[in-house]
Amino acid sequence: MPAIEANGLERTFEGGIHAVAGVDLDVAEKEIYAFLGPNGAGKTTTVRMLTTLLQPTGGSARVAGFDVVAEAANVRRSIGVALQEAALDPLMTGRELIRLQATLHGLSRQAGREKADSLLERVDLVDAADRQVGTYSGGMRRRLDLASALVHEPKVLFLDEPTTGLDPVSRRTIWEEVEQLNREGTTVFLTTQYLEEADQLADRVGIIDFGRIVAEDTPGRLKAGIGHPHLEIRLVEDVAERAREVVAGFGKPRPSKDGAVLVELEGGAGGVAPVVRALDDAGLAVESLDLVEPTLDDVFLEKTGHHLEPEEPEAGESE
């Protein structure tokens, strides 16, 4: 039985906006599945439907074997959810929050106390457990949110952009925790706009754009599927147009990024030298050259025609 299954899942909002326009999913138990896409692609709307927070306007979905509409209460009993913009009451302490969550999930007072102790230790918040959440850093809040989603040992965990806005160290801590949970048998469905996150964490990646899944596979196969590495050329002077003409004969040109000239090289590294010679012969001075292996961004570009450009984490969001 798949942990998450969706057939033609749709959500149309007032005004005819198709936020999710027919999504099919088949996520196996104990899999980490990442939904990769830019803001507004339909990631959060999909998660809200799968977690019973939003009624689908079309299609169907089952989570942990239960229909998200007809058996919503059973779905809620089976899932843990950490939503984007971790909503935490700033006046509560971390310990109080986890205990409240435990009570809402029907745990006894004693069990809730023990659960709070073990989860706070698990996410390394023992020292901050009795401080008000308002004093926590972004990373601490996300870890607390994650811990609170685990009070009832859910079979399926939904993480909506779990690391958006976090610094790299906090992000890595969350990744390690997610990997550990997965090793313990939890199915994880996460959404992200970070390529690296999907690449590192996910067993499979679904690329979503304008409410539709445009590609879905393991990160390795997705990247291999689009083929060749590309050469990223930066020039000393502003002569990108001429450079593009020169390199056009060596491979398929790609849309440029930040003023660099990009060309696919079918021969891989062996194709670099002729390009450099040709640029030299044309009198174009090269500032830097990079041979870039395909990334999920390339897959994204290939499938959607545009780059995935996530917002960068804000400076200073560290612990």
């Binding site: 977690t51 019973t52 809620r76 009993r77 913009e85 909503a87 969550q101 809402l104 029907g106 009832h152």
Partner: peptide, 17 residues
Amino acid sequence: RDIEQGWFDRLLVSPAP
């Protein structure tokens, strides 16, 4: 305010009736 800030979602995804 809880709805705007997302806290209410936390209650709604719990199995509490």
